[in-house]
Computed example of a mutant assay.
Amino acid sequence: MTPRTPYKIGDLLLHLTDRDLRVLEDLEQFRLLDTRLIQRLEFPVGPQPDGRPGFATQATATRLTLRVLHRLEEHGVIARVGRRVGGKGHGSGQTAWQLAAAGERLLRARRGETGRRRYVDPGAGFLAHTLEVARYAATLHEKARSDGFEILELQAEPASWRSFQVAQGGALTLKPDLAIVTADAESETHSFVEIDRDTEHLPAVLRKSGLYQRYWESGTEQANQDGLFPAIVWVAPDQQRADKIRCAITEDRALDARLFHATTAEPSLSVVAPYTSPNPKGGSL
């Protein structure tokens, strides 16, 4: 395929709406999204507190989502991932989407950036985890709209990564699934979120928790945030797994358990939301 010239990118922009561009930016941020997630993020149902109109029914929102996605696919700015999203609760008919090369070039050109990202068909494990992270983010957006707080920052990988120096002089990189800052009129809450799918043995969870602790000990985040260090929130698929993570961290003498929360998705939202959110805190170690 011949690369698009700046003129062709400019011409393509004439065919895209602001919402089209938000869809492209969502795909850039999360790397992969399925149709349902795009609908939740950009085609919400019901009245929206932020003033954006919502759709009357789920069916109407889904139809328009599909219409927009098919149009963006025809323009060559998004592409279907080469496997369908299956599994309990997600439906074998869900399509996963990613930016196409033209879509990435278009977003880079709008920001005045150069470079190019190489796209490959993701493996099943990467696809499932990436979509689970995006589902959590979509749920947080919905909670923010319903409870009336703001999401000041929501960074997914690799924007969420933190590089730091350890005492011995080496460089390490911490890779949270999400780095989140929420706020209301009275408070601001910072969190690192790890989405656990119960596919890793507990020693791997403890190693990642140990890296978080080394980052805390380095003082790098605190130096950039007026002494504040985010809560570290492990989000497990069920309560049994959350309890196992909580116990493993508590029993590890090398870890300061006060840094960590381990819970399931719904109660974790109260930890990530501002402290003055209507819902009480829950799920802490």
Results as ranks from 00 to 15, higher is better:
1 M>H: 09
2 T>R: 14
7 Y>T: 11
11 D>V: 08
11 D>F: 03
12 L>D: 05
13 L>Y: 07
13 L>R: 14
14 L>M: 09
14 L>V: 05
15 H>N: 13
16 L>G: 07
18 D>L: 11
18 D>R: 12
21 L>Y: 07
26 D>R: 10
29 Q>F: 04
32 L>Q: 05
33 L>M: 09
35 T>H: 01
36 R>C: 01
41 L>W: 11
43 F>P: 00
43 F>R: 05
48 Q>H: 07
50 D>E: 11
54 G>D: 10
56 A>C: 04
59 A>S: 13
60 T>N: 12
61 A>E: 07
61 A>I: 06
62 T>K: 11
65 T>L: 06
66 L>T: 15
68 V>A: 14
71 R>S: 12
71 R>F: 12
71 R>C: 05
71 R>E: 09
72 L>N: 03
73 E>Y: 10
74 E>W: 12
77 V>M: 03
79 A>P: 09
87 G>D: 07
88 K>I: 12
91 G>T: 12
92 S>V: 08
92 S>H: 15
93 G>D: 15
96 A>N: 09
96 A>T: 05
99 L>T: 11
102 A>P: 10
104 E>D: 15
108 R>H: 04
109 A>Q: 15
115 G>E: 13
117 R>N: 09
118 R>A: 15
119 Y>G: 02
124 A>E: 14
131 L>Y: 05
135 R>F: 09
136 Y>K: 06
137 A>G: 15
139 T>V: 02
141 H>F: 01
141 H>N: 06
142 E>H: 13
144 A>V: 05
144 A>D: 04
145 R>S: 08
146 S>C: 07
147 D>F: 07
148 G>Q: 06
151 I>E: 04
161 W>F: 11
161 W>L: 00
165 Q>F: 02
165 Q>H: 10
168 Q>G: 15
169 G>C: 08
170 G>P: 06
170 G>A: 14
179 A>S: 10
180 I>R: 05
180 I>Y: 09
181 V>N: 01
182 T>R: 00
184 D>K: 00
184 D>C: 03
186 E>M: 00
188 E>G: 02
188 E>S: 12
190 H>G: 01
199 T>E: 13
202 L>F: 08
204 A>H: 08
204 A>Y: 02
206 L>H: 09
206 L>K: 04
211 L>N: 05
215 Y>V: 08
218 S>N: 05
220 T>W: 09
221 E>F: 14
221 E>H: 12
221 E>W: 14
223 A>R: 12
226 D>A: 14
230 P>L: 03
231 A>W: 01
233 V>P: 02
233 V>Q: 02
235 V>Y: 02
236 A>V: 03
237 P>L: 01
237 P>I: 00
237 P>W: 02
238 D>Y: 09
238 D>R: 10
240 Q>W: 10
241 R>E: 07
248 A>N: 08
254 A>L: 14
255 L>E: 13
255 L>S: 07
256 D>G: 00
258 R>V: 00
259 L>N: 04
259 L>Q: 06
260 F>R: 01
261 H>N: 02
266 E>R: 12
267 P>L: 02
268 S>T: 08
271 V>A: 07
272 V>E: 00
279 N>P: 03
280 P>E: 11
280 P>I: 08
